[in-house]
Deep mutational scan, measured.
Amino acid sequence: NNDALSPAIRRLLAEWNLDASAIKGTGVGGRLTREDVEKHLAKA
């Protein structure tokens, strides 16, 4: 759900053309954090 994404995370996902549903969020309530996105990018 994009409503739970911060503007910074939305921008990062758009910049790298990533799908938020493909990344497991570790923040409060399962929210994506910058670290989650960076770890996903490191694996790719």
Rank of each mutant, 00 (worst) to 15 (best):
I9S: 00
N2I: 13
A42I: 10
L32R: 01
A14C: 07
V37W: 01
R10Y: 07
P7W: 05
K43A: 14
A42T: 08
G25E: 02
R34M: 15
I23F: 04
T33K: 03
L18T: 04
A4P: 13
D3A: 11
L5V: 09
S6W: 08
H40A: 12
E15Q: 14
N2Y: 08
D19A: 07
D19F: 05
N1M: 13
R10L: 15
I23N: 00
G29T: 04
D19N: 08
G29W: 05
K39M: 13
K24R: 11
R34W: 15
I9P: 00
A20Q: 06
A4C: 07
E35Q: 12
G30D: 04
L18N: 02
R31G: 06
R10W: 07
E15A: 11
S6M: 05
G29M: 06
V28P: 15
I23S: 01
P7N: 10
D19W: 05
A14Y: 08
H40V: 09
R10F: 06
L32F: 04
K39W: 09
D36Q: 00
T26C: 00
G27W: 02
A20S: 07
I23E: 00
A44S: 12
T26Q: 03
A42H: 10
S21H: 10
K43M: 15
E35R: 10
E38A: 07
K24A: 11
L12G: 00
A4E: 14
L41Y: 09
A22L: 13
P7I: 10
A20E: 07
L5W: 06
N17P: 03
P7A: 14
K24C: 05
V28T: 12
D3R: 09
A4W: 15
N1K: 07
G27K: 01
R31I: 11
D36T: 00
I9T: 04
P7M: 09
E35K: 09
K24G: 05
A20F: 06
L18Q: 03
K24D: 07
A22W: 11
N17G: 15
S6N: 06
S6E: 15
A20N: 03
N17L: 06
I23A: 01
A22P: 03
E35N: 07
I9M: 06
D19I: 08
N1L: 13
N2F: 07
T26A: 03
L32E: 00
G27A: 04
I9E: 03
A4D: 14
L12A: 03
T26P: 01
K24L: 12
T26S: 09
P7D: 15
A42P: 06
T33G: 02
N2P: 13
I9F: 03
I23L: 08
L41S: 02
K39Y: 10
R31W: 05
V28Y: 09
L5T: 06
A14W: 11
L5Y: 07
L12V: 04
A4N: 14
G30M: 02
N17E: 07
K24I: 14
G29F: 06
A20T: 05
